[in-house]
């Protein structure tokens, strides 16, 4: 990552007519950093993430992704969809096995052996090696969350946007998910977490943005305490 910013938006506006969500917001996501987006329900967190992922069209806004600058939204949307990953609050499992779900994220150009190894590694990473042949939709909420993270990791995006990644999870699953997110950050992934309940994430974010009625209300400075002792698992860059 030689660019300082993974993703930049200038003058972001959203909404029909005179509605003006985000009020020409400027947003810069530093490469390899984690931003926590907080704010009560209905503040526009999900909308913002979906725009950044190219799943929803803004009214205005200029995007730069890893230095690439595309004026036309159509073009930009394709780049965003390819390089920015959005994880739904309730991750969608494709109608198939866990393995099918994971393989879907790998591009066709990946060799057969490399695919096999990446799937195995992703399953190991989320601690679900025994689940490969399980039907994905039969899994519990926590297990689905982990499959979704493994799948996201295999897609190797530039930025990951996670919508309420710990909502609806029991305490144990939440801990597991947080541990995986920490590892992602240590691997250098640029992360944006959206949560109305920020106190679970104390040690994770470098920066906290508070969204209120579609405006950035308060930007907290990065906390000084950082955790650095989590085991780092091999990065997929090594495989490439």
């Amino acid at each position: 990552m030689n660019e300082k910013f993974a993703l930049e938006v200038e003058g972001l506006r959203y909404g029909p007519g005179d509605r003006n969500l985000f009020d020409s917001m400027n947003l810069r996501l530093e490469s390899g950093r984690c931003v926590l987006l907080t704010g009560e329900n209905g503040a526009g967190k999900t909308t913002l993430l979906r725009i950044l992922a190219g799943l929803q069209k803004p009214r205005e806004g200029r995007f730069r992704l890893e230095g690439g600058d595309f004026a036309a939204w159509k073009k930009m949307r394709r780049i965003l969809q390819k390089r920015v990953l959005y994880l739904h609050q309730q991750p969608y499992m494709f109608d198939g096995t866990v393995e099918y779900n994971l393989r879907f994220a790998l591009s066709r150009s990946t060799g057969r052996g490399a695919k096999e190894e990446l799937v195995e590694r992703a399953l190991e990473w989320v601690g679900m090696s025994g689940f490969r042949r399980k039907y994905a939709r039969s899994l519990s909420g926590g297990e689905r969350q982990r499959v979704a993270l493994a799948r996201a990791w295999l897609a190797s995006p530039t930025v990951m946007l996670l919508d309420e990644p710990t909502a609806n999870l029991d305490a144990e699953s939440r801990e597991r998910t947080l541990r995986l997110l920490r590892q992602l950050r240590l691997q250098g992934m640029t992360l944006v977490l959206a949560s109305h309940d920020p106190h679970h994430f104390t040690d994770l974010p470098d920066r906290i943005l508070r969204l209120h009625q579609g405006r950035i209300f308060h930007a907290a400075p990065p906390p000084t305490q950082k955790e650095g002792s989590a085991a780092v698992i091999p990065l997929r860059q090594e495989l490439a």
């Binding site: 992922a53 190219g54 799943l55 969809q81 390819k82 390089r83 920015v84 990953l85 959005y86 739904h88 309730q90 991750p91 969608y92 494709f94 109608d95 879907f104 994220a105 591009s107 799948r151 996201a152 897609a155 995006p157």
Partner: peptide
Amino acid sequence: VDQRAWETARTLGASFFKAFLLVLRE
């Protein structure tokens, strides 16, 4: 088919065609 199926496919980097096939498969 759930709207999320299409979105998930696209955000995982699938082409329009691959996402189309996925929706057919779903």
